[in-house]
Simulated assay, not measured.
Amino acid sequence: MAITEAVENYLETILILSQKQPDVHAIDICSYLGYSRPTVSIILKKMKDEGLVTVDDDNHIRLTDAGRHVAERIYDRHNVLTELFILLGVSRDIASEDACKVEHDISDETFAMLKSHYRKLLEKSDKK
């Protein structure tokens, strides 16, 4: 299974939920993303088969190292892009929505340059 935008969203969601609560279940993902249980179950099975998540006997969903790597990459992109858009004057809600759209399609090279520029902007604002 290719790492599609949908899979990236699921992995990012599992990461976010796991930071907020001790155990993540399929129903938590359904609630967070607004998807039906059958839809989530199908994707979770595929992600499990691909070694991106594990599901234990209590149906606790956990990211594997490979899944965590993808999730952290996307989550970092989301956070940096959101904050950069806010610095540009975009409202937080719109900045977060737009970051979610851009985080999947932007190249590694372009993101690295944006992140570098964002850090420089933060350093300048800290010196004021």
Rank of each mutant, 00 (worst) to 15 (best):
Tyr35Asp: 03
Leu114Cys: 15
Thr4Trp: 02
Thr54Ser: 15
Asp49Asn: 10
Ala99Tyr: 04
Leu17Thr: 02
Asp56Leu: 06
Glu83Arg: 07
Lys101Thr: 09
Leu114Met: 15
Val80Arg: 02
Thr54Leu: 09
Leu15Arg: 08
Met1Thr: 06
Tyr10Pro: 02
Asp76Thr: 10
Leu84Val: 11
Pro22Thr: 08
Asp126Lys: 05
Val70Thr: 12
Ile106Trp: 06
Asn9Ile: 07
Ile14Glu: 13
Thr82Trp: 01
Tyr32Val: 00
Lys45Phe: 03
Ser125His: 04
Ala99Ile: 01
Ile94Trp: 07
Cys100Asp: 14
Met1Trp: 00
Met113Glu: 15
Ile74His: 01
Glu12Phe: 06
Asn59Ala: 11
His60Pro: 01
Ile42Glu: 05
Lys45Trp: 01
Gln21His: 01
Asn9Phe: 07
Leu121Gln: 10
Glu103Trp: 01
Glu123Val: 10
Ala99Asn: 01
Glu109Arg: 07
Arg92Lys: 05
Val7Glu: 08
Leu11Met: 10
Glu123Asp: 14
Val102Cys: 10
Asp93Met: 02
Leu11Glu: 12
Ser91Ala: 10
Gln19Asp: 08
Arg68Tyr: 09
Ile74Phe: 10
Tyr32Gln: 06
Lys128Arg: 05
Val80Gln: 11
Pro22Trp: 02
Glu12Val: 02
Ile106His: 08
Lys124Phe: 13
Lys128Met: 07
Val55Glu: 15
Tyr35Gln: 06
Val55Ser: 08
Ser116Asp: 15
Ile106Val: 14
Gln21Glu: 09
Leu122Ser: 11
Val40Met: 01
Asp105Gly: 09
Lys120Trp: 11
Leu87Val: 03
Asp23Ser: 05
Val102Trp: 12
Asp108Met: 06
Lys115Met: 14
Leu15His: 08
Asp105Ile: 08
Leu63Asn: 12
Val40Lys: 02
Glu5Asn: 13
Tyr118Trp: 13
Lys45Tyr: 04
Ser125Thr: 08
Phe111Cys: 14
Ala26Cys: 00
Lys120Phe: 12
Val55Asp: 04
Gly89Thr: 05
Ile27Arg: 04
Ser91Met: 03
Thr4Lys: 05
Lys127Phe: 06
Ile74Thr: 11
Val90Glu: 12
Leu114Val: 15
Tyr35Phe: 06
Thr54Gly: 12
Ser41Ala: 13
Lys120Ser: 15
Ala66Tyr: 04
Ile86Cys: 08
Asn9His: 09
Lys46Ser: 05
Ile29Trp: 00
Asp93Lys: 03
Ala71Arg: 03
Val55Pro: 00
Glu72Lys: 04
